[in-house]
Design a protein around this nucleic acid. Structure first.
Lengths: 228, 228
DNA sequence: TTGCTTAGCAGACGTTTGTCTGTTTTATTG
DNA sequence: CAATAAAACAGACAAACGTCTGCTAAGCAA
């Protein structure tokens, strides 16, 4: 027999497993819990689930399939903030750009209260900082920044993402890519839109696949059979 | 027979019914749809659901109970899913790693239903793909992947993030950094943990600032006065 | 009218899933 | 050590559930 786990230990892990599945909108069946924990018997999983209900950690109505639910007490403590992804750069006040909202991104609620917006990066001038063309940056709107911050600034009516450098009176916007030259704006004309808090990149539509298959990887025809 | 409803009218009501149930984390069964709309036959409900899938308004995987899900398009302003950020790599079943949860990250609800976890990347073997040391990847847990996918795989008991290549029988895990060599695992021993959907990097504690001040930017003492 | 399509109904079948009973193993406690 | 409780296992059963085939009725267009 599988070695017995100390009391409560496995139960807590099962609770979190079910909790995550429920938060993901994907309620597990008893047998899925069984398999996730390598139980040999369905009843082992069900016993744990029954106990969790008895302890008030889970809810269950009737004997429906995948019928376990989270009680109110387990509701996510801090609902995330929804940050607008702007299709165009907000030169003026952020409120004027709301008609250009492409979608909303959830960010951790620790940023609640800050004025945030998201922007899609164009170009690869920040390549060596791991910010690539098409990435989305989450920006905290603020009129000034500290040296070393990655900021979004308005230069000649266009928004740029650069690293801020300060040497005495001289202000420099440095790209992170040797192919690009630093920008030295007139300190009085430098308009800081905000400071980059986070970068995100999605691989759903994999932009690398096209380039990669050029190397001679399996043709699309046998992609299915080539699944690993 | 119950009077027939004009084309599409009932279908739209069914869609909203299912959608609301899914957003509430309470997926309905076919028979629950049947009862909600007073159909006399299960098949009446199922026909509508099948059509909704065909029209792309709903998703369905396999023949699981309560298996209908929302596609990406419907997930715009839905409450985000909370994804666990694991402090340690989930070598075994995901359920065994739940005790190592550092925190939860909000991701767009388009991923609702998938089994997701987040992981902190170590090393810069994927540097040229814009995945740097310390970045967080959001992974969809799945046992296989397609060529070109960026995957998390177990190699020699350690988790690695690499790009998957397949040439016939030969499987290759390619870093995106010329300083690293590709890994050619035994196809039978390659264990795919999941596929990387997204990368995130936080600049809150700016990792670049230390390196940047070396260039002679203002010393820490006048950082404040140097704010721009 | 005829033909076609869609909506709905009826019944059945097989799988998934929840549940139950009984047994074995392990840790703990007196 | 024996007694006890908890954990896990084994096997079975019944309800829930998804799916399929065949059918009728209603609307629509040629």
């Amino acid at each position: 027999m599988t070695p017995k786990t100390p009391p409560g230990q496995t139960r807590e892990r099962i609770y979190r497993f079910v909790r995550d599945r429920l938060l993901a909108g994907n309620p597990p069946s008893v047998r899925e819990v069984q398999e996730a924990f390598n139980f040999k018997a369905v009843e082992s999983a069900r016993a744990h689930l029954t106990h969790l209900v008895k302890d008030g950690l889970l809810l269950k109505e009737g004997s429906k399939a995948r019928g376990y639910r989270l009680p109110d007490s387990a509701a996510v403590d801090d609902p995330p903030v929804q940050v607008p992804l702007l299709g165009r750069v907000p030169a003026g006040p952020l409120s004027e750009a709301i008609e250009d909202i492409e979608s909303y991104l959830p960010v951790r609620s620790k940023f609640r209260g800050a004025e945030l917006f998201a922007l899609r990066v164009e170009g690869d001038s920040m390549r060596d900082a791991g910010i690539l063309d098409g990435d989305v940056v989450i920006v905290q709107r603020q009129p000034n920044a500290d040296p070393g911050d990655i900021i979004v600034a308005m230069i000649d009516g266009e928004a740029t993402v650069k690293t801020l450098f300060v040497e005495g009176r001289r202000v420099e916007l440095r790209p992170q890519n040797p192919e690009y030259a630093p920008i030295v704006p007139d300190p009085d004309e430098l308009s800081v839109l905000g400071k980059v808090l986070e970068v995100r990149r999605h691989f759903d539509e994999n932009p690398f696949r096209a380039a990669l298959t050029r190397y001679g990887a399996s043709s699309t025809s046998n992609t299915q059979s080539a699944r690993v």
